[in-house]
């Protein structure tokens, strides 16, 4: 029995915003199936009454004072941008043709 199907892997790639080729999907499907089967072992020991731990140490929210502080100037903020225009990030169209 497989833990994950090839179709599910293709769906995951879409959710993950990864435009993967057919060969890559085939290869990943087999590997993910193996990994998911192995990590499913966590289900053997985790009973319902055990609280989850999301973090190594107990933490509560940390607040800082709400005061104005210097931030990155625009030229630095845009310094690594693939494309910039008029002091803004230039991005491809965000709506699809059908919209």
């Amino acid at each position: 029995m497989t833990a994950i199907t090839r179709d599910e892997v293709a769906h995951l790639a879409r959710l993950s915003r990864l435009a993967l080729g057919e060969d890559e999907l085939d290869h990943l499907a087999a590997q993910l199936d193996q990994i998911i089967s192995a990590v499913a072992r966590v289900q053997e020991v985790a009973a319902q009454d055990i609280p989850p731990t999301s973090h190594a140490l107990p933490l509560s929210n940390v607040y800082r004072a709400d005061e104005v502080r210097p931030s990155l100037p625009p030229e630095q903020a845009l310094g690594g941008a693939p494309a910039a225009e008029e002091q803004r990030f230039r991005v491809p169209r965000i709506l699809g043709e059908e919209a």
């Binding site: 995951l12 879409r14 990864l18 890559e24 998911i36």
Partner: peptide
């Protein structure tokens, strides 16, 4: 999606997809 497919290596893709799952 094209950028991420080209920019990330195989292990990073595996882990992103495993985490997404």
């Amino acid at each position: 999606a094209l950028t991420r497919a080209q920019g990330f290596g195989a292990e990073v893709k595996r882990r992103i997809m495993l985490g997404t799952y």
